[in-house]
Write a protein that binds this DNA or RNA. Sequence first.
RNA 1: GGAGGAGUGGCUGAGUGGUCGAAAGCGGCGGUCUUGAAAACCGUUGAGCGUUUGCGCGUUCCGGGGGUUCGAAUCCCUCCUCCUCCGCCA
Length: 536
Amino acid sequence: MHDIRWIKENQAAFDRAMERRGAEMRSASLVALDEERAATVKAMNDAQAEQKQVSKKIGMAKGKGDEAAAQAALEEVGALKARVKELEERERELAAQLREELLPIPNIMDDDVPEGADEADNKELKSWGTPREIEAARDHVDLGESLRMMDFEAAAKISGSRFVVLKKDLAKLERALATFMLNLHTEEFGYEEVLPPVLTNPESLVGTGQLPKFGEDLFEASDWLLRSAHVAEQTVLKALTAAIKQKDLLTFQAIVDNSNITEDDTKVVDEIYERVTQGGKFTEEDAGKLLEYEFDSEKAFANIFMSEVQFAKSRAKAVSKYREIAPEKWTERTNHFYLTPTAEVTLTNLVRESILSEEELPKRMTAWTQCFRAEAGSAGRDTRGMIRMHQFSKVELVSITTPEKSDEEHERMTGCAEEVLKRLDLPYRTMLLCTGDTGFGAARTYDIEVHLPGQGQYREISSCSNTRAFQARRMNARFRREGEKKPQFVHTLNGSGLAVGRTMVAVLENYQQPDGSIAVPDVLKPLMGKDVIERG
RNA sequence: GGAGGAGUGGCUGAGUGGUCGAAAGCGGCGGUCUUGAAAACCGUUGAGCGUUUGCGCGUUCCGGGGGUUCGAAUCCCUCCUCCUCCGCCA
């Protein structure tokens, strides 16, 4: 998220940055919105100051027993109160609207990020190792299946496409690779190992930028709809009880009559809402009040009615009705989870809404986690093999730094990821992504691509990004400098170190032997307990 | 899942309608004293927003949101989190 004050002071630069992104947003409308907000805040503050002043007078007058003075002040405060409330509401609306407009805006990229449309325009920064010349090189699918240790059919049976089942030494190889990477990052590079939850809430995903714009890429795991529907039913119940209490027999009778309709339960719930919230005596305002009613002796009767609608097949309409009637009671958070697409989300959000001390920085964290991606929109791409899975494991690196250290940290982090490949003796090259290929939240991204003899090309195995303060502002993650009063935003960086599944692909294809067995890379031998993976 | 309890400043903890952003203690910072340190004593010590060249001033924030009231940390509603007991469970 961008700093609106920065946008205001650098409109031309902001607009130019958006153009490079191919985004439509321009500064003018944002600045206008913020100016209106600031004016509203000022008016609100002034009104509040006045109201507070007068209220204090009342307190003092009452303390002295001067009823007449108290009464006079009391009358004075009435108009002020209404004005404050109105301005408060307006301010809240404007602030929310501003945030809503800022959240989908991508980060500003560094000036030296090369112009380009897609990965073909990425710039190679360096390469390491020489791609192996392997005669009649086989790809990892061929190798893995021949070993009888990689089973896509079994995965399709128990889950679906874009999943894989690994067995025996390949299952173990996944574990060995992850262990090797974690050991390297924790023991030699100073990263702290973390084992975070896999399900995350929407706030976290907003913090790192997956939401609100890229929900399609995520798997959801939530019962929010069901839970909310349950609450909606409770509302219906209370409305019915209210009808009873107010002796509104017409409405009540109508509700009961309709309870006989069982084929289309949605319709029943719907109609009840129509009646209770709009029909006859019940206004929208009344509906809000109904929520406060308690029922007692009528409960049993109401329950009989409810038993007929509680199996409503589609509850979406009830939910939306409920949302209209009682928005303040609606919470998106109710058991609303996402399967985490990358540990960048969990690790980075550990510092959300916190103020760190300067000595704690840089804060370096690493985690081996399962990652889940819907891969919506990539139908047909990389359908063969383990390159693009709905579920894969990754060792992630996250650094939290001061603003002046983030560039240096970015290079360091990329070096940590490269070191994994060096020690596995896998040839790679490092790319600076072009404007068209750089992700939403990144100011600058390095991709590391490993050479795959089976495909005869380099493929992405790591992506290291500096988001600068972009995520920190979304998350309100700050630090305080020694001796300074005002906290400021940290910089956040993330990188894969590495994608474990793709590393396995690289190992298989690079270490394959003519007989179809796989030589175990030296650094993995202690972890694998053998020198060769072969069909057993 | 059922029953009950609790959320106050970096920490502990007082405050149950009125000059309360909030007692007290601890911790932190500054000072006095001391050759130095400790102890003692004195002072100081949250965040956001707005405004100001700056000192400052205004306002909001006592888990989140909403409400009652001229006025809310305090009363009401709701959500979240944590704790205890029972049940279930890897």
